[in-house]
């Protein structure tokens, strides 16, 4: 009980300061601790998940569970990306009942790049263009039937896309 009060005290102070965005982050932390399904249950922007530095932390915050590798998830990425600012990546899955699909880059400052909601009737196949800071594993996570499946591939980057 004391613990819960401590946790609540911080966002309340922040709200008083009138910093709305920071308050939201605080609330997000409480929600993810109390109910892991929070992020998947509604379509609120998963601010905290996008701030995580590691792939595992981002997946945990986004879905509240861990992914297992699956050959039913296909990731298409170039072997070598000449320009890390624009790397074309696509992914698809032969699994039934896919509800979401997310792209992560292990070596980026924030691992999570994009997360897509796939309603019933939409194909589990997405193409997009992402930034890569340097040579890294690209990971795609697919949620199907309430479970997480992943595939990954290393993409060599010759010119990084995150400046510096």
């Amino acid at each position: 009980m004391t613990k819960t009060n401590d946790r609540l005290a911080l966002p309340r102070r922040v709200i008083l300061q009138g910093v709305a965005s920071v308050a939201l982050v605080g609330l997000g932390k409480i929600a993810s601790g109390a109910a892991p399904a929070f992020a998947a249950a509604n379509d609120k922007y998963p601010e905290e998940a996008f701030k995580q530095k590691t792939v595992d932390d981002a997946i945990k915050l986004l879905y509240g569970k861990t992914a297992e590798k699956s050959d039913k998830v296909r990731l298409d990425a170039p072997e070598i990306a000449e320009n890390g600012a624009v790397v074309p990546i696509s992914a698809s899955s032969t699994l039934d009942g896919v509800t979401s699909l997310a792209f992560l880059v292990a070596e980026n400052p924030n691992a999570l790049v994009a997360s897509y909601r796939i309603p019933a009737g939409t194909m589990p196949s997405v193409a997009n263009r992402i930034k890569m800071a340097k040579t890294s594993n690209v990971i795609v996570v697919v949620e199907a039937g309430g479970k997480l499946f992943s595939a990954s591939k290393e993409v060599k980057v010759t010119v990084g896309g995150c400046g510096g």
């Binding site: 922007y45 998963p46 790049v113 997360s115 897509y116 997009n128």
Partner: peptide
């Protein structure tokens, strides 16, 4: 889509 700053 939910996007972060890592999208081109």
């Amino acid at each position: 889509a939910d996007w972060g700053g890592g999208v081109s």
